[in-house]
Design a protein around this nucleic acid. Structure first.
Length: 286
DNA sequence: AATCCTGACAACCGCTATCTA
DNA sequence: TTAGATAGCGGTTGTCAGGAT
């Protein structure tokens, strides 16, 4: 018999039914689960809802600087292997990372009228945005050690050292990811060479997510109290830098220093445009 | 106030890989 | 060995909220 299946957004009742059923019977065998739970959904839909939204360990809300850096790095390494990338961002789903990539990163490519897979765009990401992110992470970490007032000053005066010696093949200038998904941050000084003057725009698309209000999800309603994840374990550097300074919960608190930012859509500053143009004009990166 | 536009993200679809009887 | 069921992945679409006009 063909049962009429529901589609579209899940209701609170459906969520509750699914959560209750899984709590008592466990997950898996999604088609029969859907039937037995009395949900008029496909097993596939139930699975997706559970994995992407209802699971207790789903981490929701803003993508942090560290996560952005990881995503950029891992995507440059693996491409659109969302699931694989998600494995290195505890609590984040492949769907969420995919959405982040499409809405934030691909938007830049679109603005530059270039392909997101083009060498120019990839180099811009690798040699400009990623070092910039590292700077911000470090600035935020420093801010965490001080008052929020001091933090603002730090951010305001920080200098983005980007690279003029990218062509020297210095691959250590970007955050590296260890085999276990560990982020290994280079020191800012290793970027060497070209020093840009404090140009990181307050609301580059790679950071402006901090200004978005955190959308409270049903999941948070259900699980907020239990959502205690330790990210220090998975994002550690050999020096313990992440352990000490980039604890995710601490970072979220520290991010308050950006909250006063202006949510304009000024995604590209002069530096970005200059950098991109340089690459269009020459094939320096080999 | 109404309409349009855009961004974010939830959900679906098609396909492949893996499992199991 | 094989066919059907299930799980998982990546691409795409739909929905909705908020901002702009």
């Amino acid at each position: 018999m063909m049962m009429d299946l529901r589609r579209g957004p899940w209701t609170v009742e459906e969520d509750f039914t699914l959560i209750n059923y899984i709590a008592h019977h466990g997950e898996g065998r999604w088609n029969s689960l859907a039937r037995c739970a009395g949900l008029k959904r496909t097993g596939k839909s139930c699975r997706l809802r559970w994995l992407n939204y209802l699971r207790p360990d789903v981490r929701r809300g803003n993508i942090t600087l560290e996560e952005q850096l990881l995503i950029l790095e891992l995507h440059s390494r693996w491409g659109n292997r969302w699931s694989k990338i998600a494995q290195h961002l505890p609590g984040r789903t492949d769907n969420e990372i995919k959405n982040y990539w499409r809405t934030r990163v691909q938007k830049h490519a679109k603005q530059l009228k270039c392909d997101v897979n083009s060498k120019q765009f990839k180099d811009t990401m690798r040699y400009l945005w990623m070092p910039r992110l590292v700077e911000r992470i470090q600035a935020a970490a420093a801010a965490g050690a001080n008052s929020s007032t001091a933090a603002r000053a730090t951010a305001a005066t920080a200098t983005t050292t980007s690279n003029s010696n990218y062509h020297q093949g210095n691959t250590s200038m970007v955050a590296d990811v260890g085999s276990g998904g560990q982020v290994i941050l280079p020191q800012a000084s290793t970027y060497g060479g070209h020093s840009f003057t404090a140009q990181f725009s307050p609301v580059s698309d790679l950071t402006d997510c901090y200004n978005y209000p955190v959308k409270q999800s049903n999941n948070q309603d259900y699980y907020q109290a239990n959502n205690q994840l330790s990210y220090g374990e998975t994002l550690t550097s050999p020096t313990g830098y992440f352990n000490q300074a980039l604890d995710f919960h601490l970072m979220e608190q520290n991010n308050a220093w950006m909250d006063g930012g202006d949510v304009s859509d000024n995604l590209w500053n002069d530096e970005d445009a200059w950098f991109f143009q340089q690459q269009l004009n020459s094939n320096t990166f080999n």
